[in-house]
Design a protein around this nucleic acid. Sequence first.
DNA 1: AGTTATAGTTACTTTTAGTAAGTAAAGTGT
DNA 2: ACACTTTACTTACTAAAAGTAACTATAACT
Lengths: 109, 109
Amino acid sequence: MKELCPRFEKAMQLFSKRWVGLILFELLEGPKRFSEMESELPVSGRLLSERLKMLEQEQIIERKVYSEFPVRIEYALTDKGKALDPVIKEIQSWSESWITKKEVENSNL
Amino acid sequence: MKELCPRFEKAMQLFSKRWVGLILFELLEGPKRFSEMESELPVSGRLLSERLKMLEQEQIIERKVYSEFPVRIEYALTDKGKALDPVIKEIQSWSESWITKKEVENSNL
DNA sequence: AGTTATAGTTACTTTTAGTAAGTAAAGTGT
DNA sequence: ACACTTTACTTACTAAAAGTAACTATAACT
């Protein structure tokens, strides 16, 4: 097996985890709370928690605790995370050019 | 649950399937055969076959049969597939800027 | 101390991925 | 004609990841 490109492989390993793309899409709009993301995406608390933990470990997002009542916890992109903006934008652009209405409908069956 | 962007969600659904990114990376270099991809990527025949079938159905790749001895089958990107070049390039560029040597090493444990 | 609101976690089921061995098709050699 | 190659898959089985629903933790407020 050839080496291909270890950094690219590592990046794809992150991206090919379910929900990661959509979580990043959300966070590019600005910092969000757990419950916001949970309600805006069709992801369960269990997986959202798991992914946020992973993205924090990869230093792509940052978890900030605000001691209010009730406690507010916000997730925000780091510089490394913000640098993914062009990637998300390219995927968005591609999907608008090449994904047909029909395909979108059929994917929900 | 908000609608977000159905086309983007559909695109991420494709991308977040394991090996899809690496298969596209390979095919952007030019048409490839099954056995070539199998040996260049750490993917098993079963999944490679499944992914190629899926990508063909999505019209991202094309399967061409050449009646030689032994039979030669090539997979090539369609225009829709070639249009993913900027996406792959952006991921590559991000990974080169932000994935450290250490991260690459640790991901193989 | 008990209530409330957010942010998770746990235990369980279903789906997807990984592995290894086997089958299919079709041109070749005898 | 028929067994032999070579590539391209498929099948049966095991392991890992994702989905679901109910439950717990924390901490400020009353």
